[in-house]
Simulated scan of single mutants.
Amino acid sequence: MMTSTTQSPVSTQARDGGAKTGTITLARHGRPALSRKCWLTSDGYRDWWRRYDLGGLQAGQTAPQELVDTASKADVIFVSTLRRAQETAQAVTGGRDIITDAIFVEAPLPPPHTPSWFKMPPRLWGVTARIWWHLFNRRDGHENRSEAENRADRAAQMLIERAERGQDVLVLAHGYFNHMIGQKLKARGWRLTLDQGFKYWSQRRFEKG
């Protein structure tokens, strides 16, 4: 499941020489290029989501300096395999080594099957599909909620192991799956100490309670 580059040296001690537990920062990618200004059937939304996953970022964006600063201070940076996350990493890491891992890809959004005359914009389809997937544990050829929960649990444990070795960890990935990881971190006693929500380029930082 994992593909990785070489990684930054492990930081196992605080700058004052004492043992420390690092932080875990979950950041969302920048704004994607694919337009949401359209109306789609459920089948059309499936195709739209496929193209969304293949596509990159909208041109002309500048990464927030605060996120660039977080990346510069991180001991290790994990990035989803999807293009929009990879291009986000290019924008914020300054060419530093990263670890690319498919464990951080977004949870799927399979919409319910509806008549061909029924259309909605992608944003509403996203909400509908997430509720459908979450409440009814729908698969429809994709990872179901239970499987995604297990994946989020494994991802959270992987990040905790890094942080407990003294590393400050940054993840550049996706809105909803970052939320799922965050819930797993909270369940393990990690506190949310920086919360910028789930907008593009946003950060949510966790520290051991």
Rank of each mutant, 00 (worst) to 15 (best):
Arg145Lys: 04
Pro121Met: 05
Ala14Trp: 12
Ala156Asn: 10
Leu194Cys: 07
Leu54Tyr: 07
Ile98Gln: 01
Arg31Leu: 15
Pro111Gly: 12
Gly94Phe: 14
Ala163Gln: 11
Met158Ile: 01
Gly55Ile: 10
Asp97Ala: 09
Thr21Met: 00
Ala14Arg: 15
Arg138Ser: 10
Gln7Gly: 01
Ala63His: 07
Pro121Ala: 09
Gln167Tyr: 02
Gln7Pro: 01
Pro122Arg: 13
Met158Pro: 03
Pro122Lys: 13
Gly175Ile: 05
Trp49Ala: 13
Ala163His: 14
Arg205Lys: 14
Ala85Met: 05
Ala107Gln: 10
Thr12Gly: 10
Asp140Leu: 01
Gly166Tyr: 09
Ala155Trp: 02
Leu170Ser: 07
Gly209Arg: 07
Ala107Arg: 09
Leu109Asn: 10
Trp190Ser: 03
Thr3Asp: 09
Phe78Glu: 02
Asn178Cys: 11
Arg36Asn: 06
Val79Asp: 10
His174Tyr: 06
Arg145Ala: 00
Gly94Lys: 12
Ala152Asp: 04
Leu192Ile: 04
Gln90His: 14
Asp97Gly: 04
Asp168Ala: 05
His113Trp: 09
Gln203Pro: 01
Cys38Lys: 12
Leu82Glu: 11
Arg204His: 06
Gly18Pro: 00
Arg205Cys: 12
Phe177Cys: 03
Arg130Asn: 11
Arg31His: 12
Leu135Tyr: 06
Asp195Arg: 00
Gln7His: 03
Gly141Met: 04
Arg138Cys: 08
Phe118Asn: 07
Arg84Leu: 15
Ser11Val: 13
Thr23Gly: 06
Ala107Thr: 15
Asp168Leu: 06
